[in-house]
Amino acid sequence: MDAPIPAKIPLTHQVISVLWPSFAVAIVATGLFFSAFHPRDLVPFDLDIEVSPIAAYSIGFFLFWMLGVLSSYGTLYFTVSNARFLGKQEH
């Protein structure tokens, strides 16, 4: 990649590059996770709570998405800030 990373990436593109890959990964992760585990086996400490499967899958999906967002944001942050740092060194 010879292309320098522009100093300013539009906010929408930043948001997309964080939300979108993590969304796709969350779908796969949710599918894999819940085909291995049944939601009723996941209630901790024998708590007596009733969670509908749809709610469990949905919450699981959002947890995976959140993890993905953290990771994608980390990548974006380090890529951009490192590129700026390198750019400063060169000038």
Partner: peptide
């Protein structure tokens, strides 16, 4: 198409 700095900027041009 997007190997030069110039086109990269085009890629990120305002929509």
């Amino acid at each position: 198409a997007h190997n030069t700095g110039n086109t990269e900027h085009v890629l990120y041009a305002a929509h």
